[in-house]
Lab assay of single mutants.
Amino acid sequence: EVHFESHGEEQAMRVVKMLKKRNLTVEVKVENNKWIITAK
């Protein structure tokens, strides 16, 4: 499981795309203006 924190939507979306290319399940949450990305 991979956790990634991002402060910007643009950066977060880039990471999500990259993770999805690896056929991982990606969950995105926004907490306290931080984008929290979890990949399994």
Rank of each mutant, 00 (worst) to 15 (best):
V30R: 09
E10K: 12
H3F: 11
S6Q: 06
V26W: 03
V30A: 02
K29C: 14
N23C: 14
V28N: 00
K29Y: 11
K21Y: 09
E9S: 06
T38H: 07
W35N: 00
W35E: 00
W35T: 01
A12Y: 05
M18S: 09
T38A: 04
M13R: 11
K40I: 12
V28K: 00
K17E: 15
V2L: 14
E31Q: 08
A39W: 13
W35F: 07
Q11T: 08
H7R: 09
T25Q: 12
K21F: 09
V15A: 03
S6P: 03
L24Q: 02
G8N: 15
I36E: 02
R22M: 14
K17W: 14
T25G: 02
A39L: 12
M13E: 06
R22E: 06
K17Y: 06
H3P: 03
K29Q: 09
V2Q: 07
E1D: 11
L24M: 12
R22Q: 12
E9G: 08
E10H: 07
K20W: 08
K29P: 00
H7K: 09
S6V: 15
H3K: 11
L19E: 04
K34Y: 08
W35D: 01
E1G: 10
E10D: 10
G8C: 15
W35M: 02
M13Y: 05
E10V: 09
H3Q: 08
T38M: 08
K29N: 05
V30D: 01
K21M: 11
V15L: 15
Q11R: 07
R14P: 01
I36S: 03
E1P: 09
E27F: 11
A12K: 02
H3D: 03
V2R: 07
E5F: 10
K29G: 03
E9T: 06
A12S: 02
H3E: 06
E5M: 09
V2E: 07
K21R: 09
E10Y: 07
M13I: 07
H7C: 15
E27A: 06
S6L: 15
K21S: 12
E31N: 06
N33H: 08
H3Y: 13
K17N: 13
M13C: 14
I37F: 01
N32H: 06
S6A: 15
E31I: 14
Q11V: 08
V30C: 14
E31R: 06
V26G: 00
K40S: 11
N32S: 03
K40V: 09
M18N: 10
L19G: 04
T25Y: 11
K34P: 00
E1S: 10
V15F: 08
V16H: 01
E10N: 06
E27K: 06
K29L: 08
H7Q: 10
E5S: 07
V28Q: 00
E10S: 09
V2M: 12
A12L: 11
V16P: 02
E5H: 09
H3S: 10
V15Q: 02
E5Q: 06
V28W: 08
N33K: 03
F4H: 04
V30Y: 14
L19H: 02
L19D: 03
T25A: 09
S6G: 10
A39V: 15
T38V: 10
T38Q: 03
E27C: 12
M13S: 05
F4K: 04
R22L: 15
K20I: 12
N33T: 02
G8K: 12
V16D: 04
K20M: 11
I36L: 07
A39C: 11
A12D: 01
V15M: 10
V28F: 06
K21N: 11
W35Y: 08
I37E: 01
V28L: 06
H3R: 14
L19K: 01
F4C: 15
R14M: 08
K34R: 11
M13Q: 08
V30L: 11
A39Q: 01
G8R: 13
R14Q: 09
V26P: 02
Q11Y: 09
L19A: 03
A12V: 06
F4W: 11
K40Q: 09
V26T: 02
T38E: 03
N33Y: 05
N32P: 02
L24I: 06
V15Y: 06
K17A: 14
T25W: 11
V30E: 05
A12H: 03
N23Y: 15
K20S: 06
V28Y: 05
K29D: 02
Q11G: 07
F4S: 03
T25H: 14
K21G: 12
N23G: 15
V16F: 02
R22S: 10
R14I: 13
M13G: 03
I36Y: 09
F4V: 05
N33R: 02
M18H: 12
V2K: 06
H7D: 13
K20T: 07
E1C: 14
F4L: 06
K34T: 08
E27H: 11
F4M: 06
K34E: 03
E1W: 13
N33G: 15
E31P: 00
L24R: 03
A39I: 14
I36H: 05
F4T: 03
A12R: 03
K20V: 11
I37G: 00
V30N: 06
E27Y: 09
T25E: 12
Q11A: 13
M18D: 11
G8P: 03
V26I: 09
H3T: 13
E9R: 13
L19S: 01
W35L: 07
K29E: 03
V26K: 00
E27W: 07
E27S: 12
R22G: 13
K40F: 12
E27V: 12
E10I: 08
Q11K: 06
R14G: 04
K40T: 11
K34C: 08
K29W: 10
S6Y: 15
E9V: 10
E31V: 12
V30H: 09
H7F: 13
N23I: 04
M13K: 10
L24G: 01
W35V: 04
N32L: 04
W35R: 00
H7V: 11
H3G: 04
H7G: 07
G8L: 14
N23R: 10
G8Q: 13
E27N: 07
F4A: 02
K17H: 09
A12P: 00
N32G: 12
V28E: 00
N32F: 05
I37H: 00
A12W: 09
L19T: 01
A39E: 02
I36R: 03
A12C: 15
R14A: 12
A39S: 04
N33M: 06
R22C: 15
K17I: 15
I37S: 00
K40R: 11
A39G: 07
V16T: 02
M18V: 08
W35G: 01
I37P: 01
N32M: 04
I36F: 07
N33V: 02
T38I: 12
V15I: 15
S6W: 08
K17D: 15
K29T: 08
T38W: 03
E5N: 05
N32T: 02
G8S: 15
K20D: 07
N23W: 14
H3I: 14
K40P: 03
T38K: 05
I37T: 01
K40N: 07
K34Q: 06
L24N: 02
W35H: 01
F4N: 04
R22W: 15
E1N: 10
M18T: 05
L24H: 04
V26R: 00
Q11F: 10
E1R: 10
S6R: 12
E31K: 05
R14C: 15
N23T: 04
N33E: 08
E10M: 06
E9N: 04
L24Y: 15
N23Q: 07
G8A: 13
N23A: 06
N33Q: 05
V30K: 10
E10R: 10
Q11H: 12
N32I: 03
H3W: 12
K20P: 06
G8V: 14
H7T: 12
H3N: 08
M18G: 08
A12T: 04
K17P: 01
E1Y: 13
E9L: 13
V2D: 04
V26Q: 00
K17F: 14
K29I: 09
K17R: 13
K20F: 13
I36N: 03
N23M: 10
K21Q: 10
M13N: 06
G8W: 14
V28R: 00
H7Y: 14
A12I: 08
K21P: 02
E31H: 07
V16W: 01
E9C: 15
F4D: 04
A39D: 00
L24P: 01
E5T: 11
V28M: 05
K20C: 13
M13D: 05
L19W: 04
N33F: 07
L19P: 05
N32D: 11
